[in-house]
Amino acid sequence: MQIELKLNGRVCKADVSPDMRLLDFVREQGCASVKCGCDTSNCGLCTLWLDGKPVLSCSVLAVRANGHEVTTLEGLQADAAEFGAFLSDEGAEQCGYCSPGFIMNVLAMVKELPDPTEEQIQHYLAGNLCRCSGYQGQLRAIRKYLLAKQEGKL
């Protein structure tokens, strides 16, 4: 099937099979930051934005993205580096495999909730699994990032 969509701001036309997942499609298009961690929509590694909203790309068909805007971490390099620096300063990107999906969701959260409570943060990100870090360092990084933002340091 022919689809046409915007991937990280660039128009992208392709012929895809009807059962192709958006996850596999964006990886084929060179967006390697998008990872697959499960078969059951549980891990959040494949998180990207569809029209600016976070979705699990393992659970969206590529054809559903037809006519829409898809954003991956490749399209948000400056934001990724900005928040990623906080994550790195905590050492909370351990293997880093969960980091892109997690950061996509953090950036979405910050757009939606400029001043989230700790509970809001934990619930917003509950679908992003990380087997390495124990989550504490991720939370420290988010807090420091939000603080820096509020203090106008970013």
């Binding site: 390697a32 930051s33 998008v34 990872k35 991956t72 971490l73 490749e74 390099q77 990724a80 580096a81 928040f83 990623g84 620096a85 994550l87 790195s88 300063d89 050492g91 990107e93 293997c95 880093g96 495999y97 980091s99 892109p100 950061i103």
Partner: peptide
């Protein structure tokens, strides 16, 4: 010291550095 990991920025910006990439 709390030194930042040297590959950290590559990982957090999603560079293609893993086997399947």
């Amino acid at each position: 010291a709390p030194v930042r990991k040297r590959d950290a920025m590559a990982l957090v910006t999603g560079q293609p550095v893993y086997t399947s990439d």
